[in-house]
């Protein structure tokens, strides 16, 4: 019966594969951490748009993204400018994370393995 319950128990709560938490500066500056959903963006843009044209390096933690850059149209600000997507004044739409989250790629099998992800 225990096995049966284990099998039918709801799956533990988890992030979506490829979600990235940005919390290098957020909480220090008094806002929630940012959660970037890869899945949402890759439906609309190829990897190369952000990782080539926008210049996001392909390793979480290698990019120092400041709000001042975004407001000037760099990084997220290339689209999040009230023209393509919501602008930098919509804090709560990007700064959506629970307090205390660690920066990095979250979700999926990778986080339990030996890799640095």
């Amino acid at each position: 019966m225990f096995t049966l319950l284990m099998l039918l128990a709801p799956f533990p709560s988890r992030a979506e594969f490829g979600d990235v938490v940005f919390n290098k500066h957020s909480e220090k500056e008094g806002v929630r951490p940012v959660i970037f959903p890869h899945w949402f963006h890759r439906i609309r843009y190829n990897c190369k748009v952000c990782h080539y044209e926008l210049g996001f390096k392909m390793r979480a933690g290698d990019n120092v993204v400041l709000m001042s850059d975004i407001i000037e149209g760099k990084f997220c600000g290339m689209c999040h400018n009230d023209k393509i997507a919501w602008g930098a004044d919509r804090c709560d739409l990007c700064h959506t994370g629970r307090p205390g989250l660690q920066s990095g790629v979250i979700g999926g099998a990778s986080t339990g393995g030996p890799g640095r992800w």
């Binding site: 949402f40 739409l93 307090p99």
Partner: peptide, 27 residues
Amino acid sequence: NWKPLAQDGLHDPSNTALSQLQNPAEA
């Protein structure tokens, strides 16, 4: 088995703006 954002353990459910974001299952 896509979790709604408010239940994924990552997003802050007390953020009222979550309701404006798309949930993974929909897409």
